[in-house]
C-alpha cells in the first residue's frame, strides 16, 4: 500500500507526512505526531474523548481519515494553553473540579470551546446539549457544566480574548 502525502496545521505548526490512507486522524495525531493528549475511548464516534477542532469546529477524530484533514487547521488539547498560560477552559476545569480521572477531559474542553465560540454566554441547558457527544464515566457532569459556565464568565470578562487555541 503506497502512502498518501498529507499536510495539515496542528496547533499552529505545519506538518507534512506520508500516511496509509486508512490512518484515522486520532492515530495520526497520537502516533505520527506524538500528541497523545487526544484520547481513544469508544472508537465508535460515541464517547467524544477523541474530539479535536478541525477548522474551528469540534469533530470526532476517530471518524475522520488523516487524509481528509488535508489543508485543515487542527487544534488539540496541547494547543489550548499559550505561553505557559492555561486557556480559560483549562483553568475553569481545574478551578471547578471538572474532572476526576481526566480521560474525557481533552474532548470535553474542545467541545466546550466549539460551544463558546458560537455562543459566548450559554445557558445550562445549552451547555448540556452541546456536550451531548461527550461521555464522562466519573463526575456525573455537574462539575463539567459548572466549569463551562465559569469559562464563559472568564472569557466574557477578558475582552477580545481568542476563543480557540490556534
Amino acid at each position: 500500500m503506497t502512502g498518501v502525502r498529507v499536510s495539515m496545521t496542528v496547533n499552529g505548526v505545519e506538518y507534512t507526512r506520508d500516511v496509509e490512507p486508512r490512518t484515522l486522524l486520532v492515530y495520526f495525531l497520537r502516533e505520527h505526531l506524538g500528541l497523545t493528549g487526544t484520547h481513544v475511548g469508544c472508537d465508535t464516534s460515541t464517547c467524544g474523548a477523541c474530539t479535536v477542532l478541525m477548522d474551528g469546529k469540534a469533530v470526532k477524530s476517530c471518524t475522520v481519515l488523516a487524509v481528509q484533514a488535508e489543508g485543515a487547521r487542527i487544534t488539540t488539547v496541547e494547543g489550548l494553553a499559550r505561553d505557559g498560560e492555561l486557556h480559560p477552559i483549562q483553568q475553569a476545569f481545574w478551578d471547578e473540579h471538572g474532572l476526576q480521572c481526566g480521560f474525557c477531559t481533552p474532548g470535553m474542553m474542545l467541545a466546550a470551546v466549539d460551544l463558546l465560540q458560537r455562543n459566548p454566554n450559554p445557558t445550562e441547558d445549552e451547555i448540556r446539549h452541546a456536550l451531548e457527544g461527550n461521555l464522562c464515566r466519573c463526575t456525573g457532569y455537574q462539575h463539567i457544566v459548572n466549569a463551562v459556565k465559569a469559562a464563559a464568565r472568564a472569557m466574557g470578562a477578558a475582552v477580545g480574548a481568542p476563543a480557540g487555541g490556534e
Binding site: S45, G48, T51, M54, K57, A58, V59, K60, T63, V64, A111, D114, L115, A130, E132, G133
Partner: peptide, 9 residues
C-alpha cells in the same frame, strides 16, 4: 441528528 461533533462532519 447525532451530536454536535457528528453534525459538524
Amino acid at each position: 441528528i447525532g451530536d454536535v461533533q457528528v453534525r459538524n462532519r
